[in-house]
Amino acid sequence: MRSVPQPTKLQFDLSGSQHLICVTSEVIDVIYTRLEELEHIPQNIQILQLGETVKARKDWKIEQFNSVENLQKKLREILERAYIGTRFYAIGSAQFIYDVENCARSFGMSEEEISLEVFDSKARRVYCSTCHTINYPVSTNLITCSGCGIKLEIWEHFSRLKNAYLGVCADAENPGDLL
């Protein structure tokens, strides 16, 4: 059982019949490169991109969204009609990955059907064990929770379901004493 995520690289599963990709505009080029690396580029590809860019390639079916809520709305519409055999991919920040993977899982998609890649693994999501708020982005090992204000020590324990690390009160014994 792993407590810490193994950094994963987005991998196309060619046994899938349909490929749905969610990506942030900063890393769209990564998708193009990865697709072109494949011996056989799969047919049914749909790309949902967060962030609008001028240079949209004509040869891929890409839809651009100005907000994550709009992207999620479209994503849910697609997932509602999608058939099993579909594969789901997401690449972007930890927050973005969580926002879209959550949708895919709510429609019954499993780890076997999902491939993710986090860009900028320095920006972590941290789950406060006291008030359950997700703190993001976190790049240190000690933070103040944005939800309840307590000092959180970030443990090397990661939840795949929440896509977040566990944050535990650092000075529970003696508030203010962080030794």
């Binding site: 997932l79 999608a82 058939y83 099993i84 579909t86 429609f107 019954g108 998609m109 059907e113």
Partner: peptide, 8 residues
């Protein structure tokens, strides 16, 4: 089996 929803 064809055209079944996700999570079948």
């Amino acid at each position: 089996l064809k055209e079944q929803p996700l999570g079948t």
